[in-house]
Design a protein around this nucleic acid. Structure first.
Lengths: 101, 101
DNA sequence: GATTGATTTCGCGAATATGCGAAATAATCA
DNA sequence: TGATTATTTCGCATATTCGCGAAATCAATC
């Protein structure tokens, strides 16, 4: 009955949040970078990030004045790439839950 | 801007729909099977299935009186299994978009 | 200690999703 | 043809999500 997978999916069910995960796939970013990448206000972006955080998809760390976000569920970023191959190709490999602490 | 990946995620962002995808991972099922697997009325289940269909995650086929659903995006079912390993294990492989027509 | 800069929280109205029962379809059978 | 079974569509009420601007935090600096 308890379906934590659906919480992860729900958290990813918004274009801005997918966009953030894609960017974070390149490495950590501060909120300012993420705000720039999307046509939304700071408060809205912040809320989207907290949704991703609650779902366990990202973590944040405050350094100085800025807050940096990074992917904590790297397989999500790979799965997105996978979806965007759009039915054409057969797949490589999927490193769900890579072994970071 | 157009983020079809987020449409797939949004479609999966409900426990019943994840449940259906998991069952369909075992093979095709008629709507009656899916209704049984969940505590919701027929009309609700039917709507959930149409959400999955619109997102390209399942296809349906009518045979006689019954409608059968099957996964059209098998990697989704694998990704769910992957998520449910819950951070413990390193991953096998992810057959996104297997080569059915 | 007051100010500045980066980010989050709050409260709101508007849009969307959810679940239901009733009615509509569609295929089969008598 | 009319009844039966399986499923979908519709309309409604409730609940959740979205995006915004204003106000609140919080760390660094003056």
């Amino acid at each position: 009955m308890s379906n934590s997978a659906s919480d992860v999916f729900k958290a990813l069910g918004h274009p801005a949040r997918v966009q953030f995960v894609k960017l974070l796939g390149e490495g950590e970013k501060c909120v300012c970078d993420l705000v720039e990448s999307v046509d939304l206000g700071w408060s809205t972006v912040s809320r989207h990030l907290s949704v991703l955080k609650e779902a366990g998809i990202v973590t944040d760390e405050k350094r100085g004045l800025q807050v940096f976000y990074r992917l904590s569920l790297p397989c999500v970023s790979q799965f997105i790439a996978c979806l965007e191959l759009d039915g054409k190709t057969v797949q490589t490999d999927c490193a769900c839950h890579s072994m970071e602490t």
